[in-house]
Design a protein around this nucleic acid. Sequence first.
DNA 1: AAAAAACTTGTAAACGATTACATTTGAATT
DNA 2: AATTCAAATGTAATCGTTTACAAGTTTTTT
Lengths: 339, 339
Amino acid sequence: MGGTVQAKTAKIQDVARIAGVSTATVSRALSNPDLVAESTRKAVMDAVEESGYRINHAARNLRRQRSGSILALVPNLANPFFSQILAGLSSVLSPAGYGLLIADTQTDNNPQERLRSYILNGLADGIVIFDGHLPEKQMLPPQHPPIVLACEWVDFDLPSVRVDNAKGAQIAIQHLYDNGHRRIGHITGPLGNVLADSRLNGMKNTLEQLGLAVRKEWIFNGDYSMDSGTFAAKQWLALDDRPTAVFCASDEMATGFMGALQHAGIDVPNDVSVVGFDNIEVVEHLTPALTTIRQPRRLIGQHAGQMVMNMIDDGVMSCASEIIPVELIERKSVVAPKT
Amino acid sequence: MGGTVQAKTAKIQDVARIAGVSTATVSRALSNPDLVAESTRKAVMDAVEESGYRINHAARNLRRQRSGSILALVPNLANPFFSQILAGLSSVLSPAGYGLLIADTQTDNNPQERLRSYILNGLADGIVIFDGHLPEKQMLPPQHPPIVLACEWVDFDLPSVRVDNAKGAQIAIQHLYDNGHRRIGHITGPLGNVLADSRLNGMKNTLEQLGLAVRKEWIFNGDYSMDSGTFAAKQWLALDDRPTAVFCASDEMATGFMGALQHAGIDVPNDVSVVGFDNIEVVEHLTPALTTIRQPRRLIGQHAGQMVMNMIDDGVMSCASEIIPVELIERKSVVAPKT
DNA sequence: AAAAAACTTGTAAACGATTACATTTGAATT
DNA sequence: AATTCAAATGTAATCGTTTACAAGTTTTTT
């Protein structure tokens, strides 16, 4: 509350002058209070108050050789699947003083190069990547900031935070089986995607263990989007011999699938049971409410953020991955098949 | 492609040495190519290539007194409503060389102070705010970076990019009227929210113009969330004298409303017609597909980004607001009322 | 052909912090 | 009392750019 209006923003020099100490002492009082005497600290704080001093991050970053922010590379920012994860990320980064920088890799024609440039530019102290296709081992410079994958993963030494996708698929299939289904189909994620593959494989393996056939015509290719669910519905409708249940690799596809089926006059779940994956918010409000595999998205974001900050603090470029458990959420989209 | 591995990252000095020019020339060749001779530029570019030089943003920002990023202040990052807008923002910011910094104002116990600190800290060259409650005139320092509101707005001189909410409400009500409805209810957004208020007022005015009663017990208070839609459904169910149609101030509430009604055995749209607001992706896949007012979210993000960049370039702190038109999307959730 | 204008380029001073190293002071140890 | 040690502070270099100013070339104008 101390008086004159600042023409220019105060700098550390001004604080030092007012407090009657050197700039070094001000800096220490601010970022390492234990190093200065109690009385000095007080004087500095008062001077800060009086001058309205605010640290200049660009200057600090330059000197400290850091950026103070973490970069999140999202394949498609418009996809609401990421919003919860980003919220989780933000919730741990923010209190720790990190900024959250977000980039959409999809809008880019050369995301690989973009990643490289982000790394090299030193724009971020750490990077969280949501797209397993993005980083390639040979693209990574020998020296790079900590990188962690979230949801997806890669086959070299970048750590990741993810759920046990195969397990999720297994739980889903088992649930369908327990409800009497023996004819089970699947809508996959995009081919080649690690997530899609492990859900597909988890499904196939479980089917085999249960002694059930894996029928090729019951596997519909999707890309996680609602529209691809709609497209799968068309294929399902065209089938002579239909599966009585379909496990979808994403809730979005399940939503599109159910919607298109219902619009075509099919009764879900009585004509076909559906299980999703992710437990996005909306599916509880669908009719029927969707039975799905919960993926704790907020938690994934939080852990990824924590992991990348730990790596920064420890100065390491790699660490152990983390697998977060999945869980079946039973709702109304699964019933016993008609006989 | 030029040979030795860099022990340390090259700096502008190194480039200058290799190219045989001064650092000033390198800087100019890079950021203002027109100022240097063709031949020199070439030499510099070659030297950049050879040394693997990357600009150090912290240094540049310090010197230029800018941050190179735009801050988006989102009330709740977990809300998928914002993802499209952020995607739009990102799509214009990124090509222009701006980073997109995102902060969730909800996780914060004192967002006002946080906003102030963001402004004062100079962490961003411009700010996009999605929460009309956030900025208060007296909180803004006399000198602040360009700020634009998106979706919401304030009653002082900050510009905004938004849709015509009252008009949207009017279109929705008129549509219901045209389909024969005379008993129309509403689920509001959170009280005091500018958006919620103008949609409510738009609705009331239209009702009056049409000579219809505004019945208090048919106005349900919500907060845009699906859960509040569910809650409104309970109230609707408890009514003796029910409206035959409900206009919801958000698609999320419409989704929760329809879902809860259907779970309770009510037939939508035959027992009650529903109109939403926003046209979020999922509503087209609901059963019945939701009739709604489209709010072009991606576009809003793009325009907000453009606006803030223009303000930065022009060095102004204010400019004219922009109203983006809304549009009725007719689907299946509105039919004539039962007689 | 001299003067003026237009290009190029270099020199060196910022930008605003942090921190290694040096110095001072006072307390603790021998 | 002399020595050692720790705590508190100051001095000044440094982080890597950009850019005002000056100076040296050409080119254009008169």
